[in-house]
Write a protein that binds this DNA or RNA. Sequence first.
DNA 1: ATTGATTTTGAAAGTTTTTGACTGGTTATG
DNA 2: CATAACCAGTCAAAAACTTTCAAAATCAAT
Lengths: 251, 251
Amino acid sequence: MLTEDRYSTILETVNINGSATLAELCTLLDTSESTVRRDLAYLDEKGMLVKVRGGAMSAHSTDNFTALERDVAEKALLFNDEKVAIAKYAASLIEEGDFVFLDAGTTTEKMIEFLPEKNVTFVTNAFVHAMKLAKRGFRVFVPAGEIKVTTEAIVGADCIKSIEEYNFTKSFIGVNGISLSVGFTTPDKTEAEVKRAVIANTRKSYFLADHSKFDKITAVNIAPLTEGKIITDKVENKKYVTEASVKEVMR
Amino acid sequence: MLTEDRYSTILETVNINGSATLAELCTLLDTSESTVRRDLAYLDEKGMLVKVRGGAMSAHSTDNFTALERDVAEKALLFNDEKVAIAKYAASLIEEGDFVFLDAGTTTEKMIEFLPEKNVTFVTNAFVHAMKLAKRGFRVFVPAGEIKVTTEAIVGADCIKSIEEYNFTKSFIGVNGISLSVGFTTPDKTEAEVKRAVIANTRKSYFLADHSKFDKITAVNIAPLTEGKIITDKVENKKYVTEASVKEVMR
DNA sequence: ATTGATTTTGAAAGTTTTTGACTGGTTATG
DNA sequence: CATAACCAGTCAAAAACTTTCAAAATCAAT
């Protein structure tokens, strides 16, 4: 097997599952730990994935900053099916002629493959999303702004200004915390500002979050729960169903 | 078996499977390793496939936007050494405090690894460049605009508008044609417009092109030769040296 | 057909790169 | 704090590569 083929297989695995453990890759490639380690080091250096303890993660993931860094093995299984279900449902909401904002993040990224082949225009502040959307044949715009290297997203004052020039029919926003008292929250100030600007210029906003994000408050406030509809896999706390508009895709 | 037949068999195999190992091809063609090696070297030089350790890979960048394919494609790049030399010199021109526009394209992309560790801010309309620059620790902005899928660049009216808000100290522009009569040209109208806007808002513009671009005119006009300095590997036609400002990095 | 020049081929020698095992140190976990 | 998982570094063996050279094939005339 060629080195390049190993690289491809690793990248494919990591990108599809969001992450992969060292042991998994050794079995898959039928090669030694040393070699996989070296491959990961190379791919990490090239920025094609992110090496973490125990394996590697996709380079394009943003939803994973709840202060603690999770173990990869855990992360690999963690809520992937739920995210796919959420993404699938969210994608189905898009209609002919829509002008849609797609937020950065893994869940919104997953939406792209499920999008219907329609005449829809997108705006997104995530590089990967922009490229994927364009490759799928949609018309895609990006706002101006500064690059935030950790999340590969566009943020900042210029970004807000760009977004204010648009009026979206729908927007799909990822959030890291949902709470009855403070509403939607996210860990990063600059990203929160972008999300706020988007919501202010959108007819109907959808907030995407798996069940683990409920009853959780992160650093920066985005909006109250009344600002849009929540799309999630399921909610334990029934108060959310009465106090906010919630769609549970796995119940 | 005819040499040409071997060539076509190799290409067929490589293109269908995406790659092939040396051993595979030896068996398939029933010939010696030396011969297959020579064939691969030839086909690689002609750009019909990309030779890698252990075999060869298809030269066609497929529909997937992975950095690996970019890496592979890079090896197949025409005039690679020349482009590296040009990029290296161009990078050395950047000084502390500069506010630089970096155009989309392979030569400007190569500049990034040679950039000095200085306090410099960049604006670029190419996704890949933006990410690479940010990873290297520079402050990076992108203009707003529409995604052009073929070149992975940002273009369009919004892009021009964004660029007009800046005043660059230096800009590095890639061009596809340089001619004494019409000046700098490029094949794409939308990209030409962006380049023009950049030049209009730059104190000192540099035009990057290898020697193959001289005495060549492509579809859309960008600017006359007097608009900036040309950085190239070498020029055959000495008229350019007298009529324009030219730096030859390989002479 | 034969001769000599030219090109192509396969084998061999020597060099470089990659690989997998092993070492000992570090980090998580119960 | 003990144990297991993980990781960086080292090293020798294996694989792949480059260069060189002579034999074989091809060609181009006589």
